[in-house]
Design a protein around this nucleic acid. Structure first.
Lengths: 193, 193
DNA sequence: GCAAAACAGCGTCAAATGTCCTCTTTCAGG
DNA sequence: CCTGAAAGAGGACATTTGACGCTGTTTTGC
């Protein structure tokens, strides 16, 4: 049932034993969600750490004009949560939504904290994930303030070649911080070459 | 000598005892740097965690056109480092420069790691800093992809009221990801009101 | 199946932003 | 006291981007 999870975790870290990974997996709740279903609604407190077994999620905010802005795409075999809300038990600014039918593993904060205190290696792995998230976020921020729309698009295509084919272009535009019009102009221009 | 450091840390965390804080402080090297002096040059490995006792630093990248892009301002009584380079001992993409004469505390990675293994509370505090950095970075990223230039400027003024008076506007523009011209238009328009 | 919604390309126009330039002021170094 | 560099305002012009409306196609829900 958790074979994918266990296999994936082993590729990510050498510090966890098979038994530990199995214990972590057994503590999770598995749920299936349908496309368009919300896993976290802005204003609510994020109660879970999520691991995606199958499917595809997105994290996005909605501004005062009702515009959506995609913060993150979360494909299968990745972790996600809304860290600020989860860590501090405060209302989230972001929504998490399934953009494909998905199968997820969920851990409540209590459960996950308990696991970490019993399994020091999990704590270490978890810290590594936070640190990596920070580096990813900073590098994306750097692109956001320094690159042209076209450079951001090319960077996206290079970094996440698979995503482009699975999500609507308007979400890609939103992720890049440009209008759909701009994105389609860029794509048009690249076709001409 | 470290009175400011010790006092500040006590306001930040309750988990460290006076003795522990003092031990951390004594493990640091204090250096004075002059305005415009580089603490880290892109391409080098970042060897230190830095705490700023007095002065002001900035972290910035330089793109292929030679343009500078400010990732971060670091005023007195804050921590800074280039986390990706520091953690993985890889060449840094960013420079860290003093923009005022500054007095700094430095810890090498060996020293700091040693402190953390002797003082579990320091590890905890340090993890909190990483997590907070991540939230700050994500929130800034959200602004970068969702807000207009004027909203970003107003947000900056509200969030860091002190910085505006101490750094050249071109660095603020660079931090916001807009040209100096755009920033000066925004400021001009606001004066008219 | 069928109607409605979502998606994405395109044209037009207006607004936002950038580049290049000049001019003035300030300030640090000799 | 002089001088050159840095800072920043602002004009002129070009480019980029966005908003809006329209269209045809695909997908979705019933």
């Amino acid at each position: 049932m958790f074979a994918d999870f266990e296999k994936y975790i082993k590729t990510q870290t050498a510090v966890l034993t098979d038994d530990e990974i199995s214990m972590i997996a057994r503590a999770a709740t598995v749920t299936n969600v349908r496309k368009k279903q919300l896993l976290l609604q802005a204003g609510d407190v994020c109660r879970y750490k999520i691991f995606i077994l199958e499917g595809f999620l997105r994290t996005y905010g909605v501004d005062a004009d009702g515009e959506e802005h995609v913060m993150q795409f979360s494909p299968a075999l990745t972790w996600t949560t809304e860290g600020e809300s989860y860590a501090n038990c405060i209302p989230s600014n972001y929504n998490i939504e399934a953009i494909e039918d998905s199968r997820l593993m969920l851990w409540t904060k209590d459960t996950f904290t308990g696991l970490m205190s019993n399994i020091p290696s999990l704590k270490q792995y978890s810290e590594n994930l936070v640190a990596q998230n920070l580096h990813t976020s900073r590098n994306r921020l750097y692109k956001a303030i320094s690159a042209t729309a076209e450079e951001k698009y090319e960077d996206f295509v290079k970094t996440y070649p698979g995503i482009l084919l699975r999500v609507p272009l308007r979400m890609v535009a939103s992720y890049l911080g440009v209008s759909l019009k701009t994105l389609s102009r860029i794509r048009q221009a690249q076709l001409q070459r």
